[in-house]
Design a protein around this nucleic acid. Structure first.
Lengths: 213, 213
DNA sequence: GTGGGCAGCAGAT
DNA sequence: ATCTGCCGCCCAC
């Protein structure tokens, strides 16, 4: 009674799904869309996210409202700067001192194996990293503006400040320095020194986010 | 006063972050981990997810609790069968009749361009699809077991049953048929016919999920 | 609108 | 522990 089963792929609405409820559904869908656009706008702002505290942890990147890009380490735009970064264990040039982090830019590594044509988890560096890469540029801009950068740490981080599980919001950091450096293989990488911001340290007990458990 | 700023990378907990609160944090982290494991177990069950209704829509795949894989179309295991699928617009062999769906297996398409070494959104078929692919196998097994498969439709679906926005849970379907077919390019693909299950149609108003808005 | 690059994720071995 | 494939997502042009 809910539907007339279509034989030709056509769906015929019945009494229960009359015009009024269709309008309702359209309205709901519209509201969801607007709500989403508001949330997305939040993701593209600097500083803390309302309702999220330093130390909050989620089981996957997808659930984490602090760093709203699915696979990238850097979320930012080359014009406005960097909103957030994820510290994980892809780039061996990272150094994690807790309140100070040396972070590596993106690009220049060969993720695709030309022989097999497959994507690799990690690969050799084959090009210089460039400031023109929008991720690298966004952190460079943040050094100029001084805007805070949200930092999450992955459980995969090779450092004693890594969470035991999931992805943890570790508060706001500031990009203090940005430079290029030549690695032992002769290619250049972008590097950044970030330091936890005073503002972030004054909120609740930031150490709970950084103590090795 | 919250921490002693480390010069050697060592964090020293101070009075505010004493042993008792560290134990608390460990406990919290443990609880989060257990909660997550429960949720993951939920994702690997057949049938509807508690609290999710047919027609519910989310703005991104990541937020959708019904299909808990980030990029794959099929979530399943080759032993237990398929938990859920996503209908989108990657495979041109899909046919969407609303209550009946012809779905294509995965694999066999060349997503990597050997010339540029880059990943492509879509590519030519270069191999037969195989039942041994765990995604394809899982749907094959579901045809045997008759277990329900959760279906979400993407806004990218090329069909009048696509949602106007986001990813929509369209209820439970059953795999009625599974076969291999040769495409015009000479390679074989796995195909499946899924039909909406009676059980799903009796819950709320399933039509609201399938009416073209 | 189109395309490139990517600090994920689950299942399998 | 490691590997592979993948019906995404964002930002830039």
């Amino acid at each position: 009674m809910l539907t007339v089963l279509p034989t030709d792929g056509t769906i015929t609405a019945t009494a229960e799904c009359a015009a009024s409820s269709i309008a309702e559904i359209q309205k709901e869908e519209q509201e969801r869309k607007q709500r989403n656009e508001r949330l997305l706008k939040f993701a593209k702002t600097f500083g803390s996210i309302p309702g999220v505290e330093v130390g909050d942890t989620w089981s996957s990147r997808a659930e984490c409202p602090v760093h709203r890009v699915p696979m990238q380490g850097i979320h930012g735009s080359k014009d406005d700067g960097c909103y957030s970064i994820a510290i994980s264990n892809l780039y061996k040039y990272d150094s994690d001192f807790g309140e100070t982090v040396i972070y590596t830019g993106s690009g220049g590594f060969e993720h695709y194996d030309p022989k097999s044509g497959k994507r690799r988890r990690t690969g050799p560096q084959v090009r210089d990293q460039q400031w023109s890469d929008f991720g690298n540029m966004s952190l460079y801009v943040s050094r100029e503006t001084g805007n805070p950068v949200r930092v999450i740490r992955s459980w995969k981080t090779v450092s004693k400040y890594a969470p035991a599980f999931g992805y943890r919001y570790d508060g706001l950091y500031t990009v203090k320095d940005a430079w290029k450096e030549q690695t032992e293989n002769g290619f250049k990488i972008c590097r950044y020194r970030l330091e936890v911001s005073k503002a972030s340290r004054l909120v609740s007990c930031p150490m709970k986010a950084r103590i090795f458990l």
